[in-house]
Amino acid sequence: MSLINTEVKPFKATAFKNGKFIDVSDADLKGKWSVVFFYPADFTFVCPTELEDLAENYSEFQKLGVEIYSVSTDTHFSHKAWHDTSAAIKKIEYTMVGDPTGTISRNFEVMIEEKGLADRGTFVVDPDGKIQIVEINAGGVGRDARELLRKVKAAQYVASHPGEVCPAKWEEGEKTLAPSLDLVGKI
């Protein structure tokens, strides 16, 4: 079953953000756009490159009113230790959620049960708490924050412009489409 247009399932967790441990829940994803960014594990190889890329683009997401939540099955303590020891992870200002029980990973259907780790899953959640974008990558394939930013802009545009859709490679300010019988077979 697809998670598109489904509401985020309830969860509670502890996270590391800006030098503090904080409580996070599904309620925090409501009222604004959010990105929930799963990765396999702290202190690994592809993961820090992805998280650093997100950190370097975080201000662009913030300008769009988007909050980022990175999630792994590590604890919030591990997130702090990684943040304190890695130059790449030290750049992170967004919320790093600990999911040692795997509840959140299972809720988003990215748990690799035999490993106790999450797949590389990216979820864009709208202000109503509904999932609008789902992307799952193989463990060895890193993601691109700029492409995610483009997709978030497209999702926000479609949400605020009923009757319009964004074509492939759409960038902010470019022409959109208004699906209708007149368009069938003309694209």
Rank of each mutant, 00 (worst) to 15 (best):
residue 3 L to N: 00
residue 4 I to R: 06
residue 4 I to L: 03
residue 7 E to M: 04
residue 11 F to H: 00
residue 14 T to S: 04
residue 15 A to W: 03
residue 16 F to I: 11
residue 20 K to P: 04
residue 24 V to E: 08
residue 25 S to H: 00
residue 36 V to Y: 10
residue 38 F to H: 09
residue 38 F to T: 06
residue 52 E to C: 03
residue 56 E to N: 04
residue 56 E to S: 02
residue 57 N to H: 06
residue 67 E to Q: 05
residue 68 I to D: 08
residue 70 S to C: 01
residue 72 S to R: 09
residue 72 S to K: 12
residue 75 T to V: 04
residue 78 S to H: 15
residue 79 H to P: 05
residue 79 H to G: 10
residue 80 K to W: 10
residue 81 A to K: 10
residue 83 H to F: 12
residue 84 D to I: 04
residue 86 S to G: 08
residue 89 I to P: 05
residue 91 K to S: 02
residue 91 K to H: 01
residue 92 I to N: 04
residue 92 I to R: 03
residue 92 I to Y: 02
residue 95 T to V: 04
residue 95 T to S: 06
residue 98 G to R: 02
residue 98 G to I: 02
residue 101 T to H: 09
residue 102 G to T: 07
residue 105 S to H: 10
residue 106 R to P: 04
residue 114 E to Q: 14
residue 121 G to H: 13
residue 126 D to E: 09
residue 126 D to R: 11
residue 126 D to H: 09
residue 134 V to K: 03
residue 138 A to E: 13
residue 143 R to D: 11
residue 143 R to N: 09
residue 146 R to G: 14
residue 151 K to E: 15
residue 152 V to M: 10
residue 158 V to C: 08
residue 158 V to Q: 07
residue 159 A to H: 11
residue 160 S to A: 09
residue 166 C to I: 02
residue 166 C to Q: 04
residue 168 A to G: 14
residue 168 A to D: 12
residue 170 W to Y: 05
residue 173 G to Y: 01
residue 173 G to K: 01
residue 175 K to C: 12
residue 175 K to W: 14
residue 178 A to W: 06
residue 179 P to V: 08
residue 182 D to A: 14
